[in-house]
C-alpha cells in the first residue's frame, strides 16, 4: 500500500510543474498550477514557500537568483536528479492513491 499525505500532493504539483517548465520562480509556479489545473487548484503562498525551502533542503530542487522578463530579481527553482526520482516515486504513489480511492468509492 502506498503512503501518501496532503503535503505530498503539494510537493507533487511543484515537482511536476518544474519538470514541465524547467526553471521557474515561486509566483510562476502558483500561476502554472492554477492554469494547468483549469483554475481548479489554488496554491496557498503560505504553504508554497515553506514547501519550496523544505524541498531545497532535501535537494530535490535547486535555486538561483535571476532576472525575470520584466527585469525583476527573483529566485528561480529547478529540478535536480534526486528531484526527478522523487517525482517518479511520488507520481506512482499518487496513482495508487487515486486508484485506491476510486475503487473504494465505486464499491460503496
Amino acid at each position: 500500500m502506498a503512503r501518501y499525505d496532503l503535503q505530498g500532493s503539494l510537493d507533487l504539483l511543484v515537482l511536476k510543474t518544474l519538470s514541465q517548465r524547467g526553471k521557474l520562480h515561486g509566483y510562476g509556479i502558483v500561476l502554472h498550477i492554477q492554469r494547468a489545473s483549469d483554475e481548479l487548484l489554488h496554491v496557498e503562498e503560505g504553504s508554497l514557500y515553506p514547501a519550496l525551502h523544505r524541498m531545497e533542503q532535501s535537494r530535490w530542487i535547486a535555486s538561483e537568483w535571476a532576472l525575470t522578463e520584466t527585469g525583476r530579481r527573483a529566485k528561480y527553482y529547478k529540478l535536480t536528479a534526486m528531484g526527478r526520482r522523487q517525482l517518479q516515486e511520488t507520481e506512482a504513489n499518487f496513482e495508487q492513491l487515486v486508484k485506491g480511492v476510486r475503487t473504494m468509492l465505486r464499491y460503496a
Binding site: 515561486g26 514557500y49 525583476r72 530579481r73 527573483a74 529566485k75
Partner: peptide
C-alpha cells in the same frame, strides 16, 4: 533578508 526579498518579488509580480 533573502526570504524577504523572495516574498517581496512574489508580491510585486502578483500586483503587476
Amino acid at each position: 533578508a533573502e526570504i524577504e526579498e523572495e516574498l517581496r518579488a512574489h508580491l510585486e509580480m502578483a500586483a503587476e
